[in-house]
């Protein structure tokens, strides 16, 4: 007669092994999902566009960061707005998840590239089993360091080593200690869904759960080209806000003569 305890032990071990396999399915070329095509974010250009109240879509901020957020909103009422994007800095991660421009996925068994048109931002997600670099090699990165694994057709991503940044133009800040996990899956032929959890012990009082969706664009003429942000960027910083330089003004740089004009 089989020992009852042994059965329980073996059963438990098999369940554990199955879970373990589930936690990291080995991706091979023949199993790669088809995420081809050109994609764009669905909904409003805000990190969490799920609710009706754009003022309060994030969990309570710690007081210091709540005050900074309120300052941005107050400034906006007074037409004072500053956004690093204006000055050709990248959106960075996780803000880039809420940007509206063209996006593309390149999937290989050992790596996924999530390519954003804006500022040529590329998120590299390593799915070859590597870990994050050791602590003494981590430093703030625009896209962070992302490792991932596949659970069936779901890409599970873990990102650390971020720069301090804003989630969107409303100015709510995340710290460089933010840790972001994502479950990314194509839920139908035209939709990729990203279930995001941001944990940030510095700025947030509890984890922030956000779901974003990306729609496939049908127009075959669309493609991602190099985004040379400084080529004809007429937006300039003035009095804490944003202004425009006109072609008749001395600070203007004519994009048809880039080599000469950049010396201005």
């Amino acid at each position: 007669m089989i020992d009852r305890k042994l059965v329980i032990f073996l059963g438990g071990w098999l369940a554990f092994a199955a879970l373990g396999a589930r936690a990291a399915d080995k991706m091979t070329w023949d199993k790669l999902p088809d995420w081809s095509g050109m994609w764009t974010m669905e909904g409003r250009v805000i990190f969490d566009g799920s609710g009706k109240d754009p003022h309060r879509e994030f969990p309570p901020l710690r007081p210091e960061y709540e005050a900074k957020y309120q300052k941005v909103v107050q400034d906006a009422i007074n037409n004072i707005e500053f956004d690093p994007l204006t000055h050709c800095l990248p959106a960075g991660f996780p803000r880039v998840l809420g940007e509206p421009f063209l996006q593309e996925f390149v999937i290989r068994p050992e790596q996924v590239w999530w390519i954003h048109e804006q500022q040529n931002e590329i998120r590299r997600i390593y799915t070859d089993g590597r870990k994050h670099p050791p602590a003494d090699e981590l430093y703030p990165l625009w896209e962070g360091h992302s490792i991932g694994h596949w659970e069936g057709d779901t890409l599970v991503v873990d990102t650390v080593s971020l720069r301090e940044g804003i989630y969107d133009r409303t100015g709510a800040i995340h710290s460089d200690k933010a840790h972001v996990t994502e479950r990314i899956r194509k839920i139908n032929a035209d939709t990729i869904e990203d279930q995001i959890v941001v944990e940030d012990p510095v700025t947030l009082t509890k984890p922030w759960h956000v779901t974003k969706r990306y729609k496939k664009l049908k127009d075959p003429s669309l493609r991602i080209d190099h985004w040379a942000c400084e080529e004809d960027n007429r937006a300039v910083f003035k009095d804490g806000s944003t202004d425009i330089v006109l072609p008749t003004e001395s600070r203007y740089k004519d994009p048809s003569k880039p080599d000469e004009e950049q010396k201005k």
């Binding site: 107050q74 509206p100 133009r169 806000s241």
Partner: peptide
């Protein structure tokens, strides 16, 4: 109401690459 309006403007105008304040 003013805060909500400002936040709404900030969240919807952002199709533009830069601030729209000017």
């Amino acid at each position: 109401a003013a805060l909500l309006a400002a936040a709404f403007v900030l969240s919807t105008q952002a199709f533009a690459h830069h601030s729209f304040a000017m």
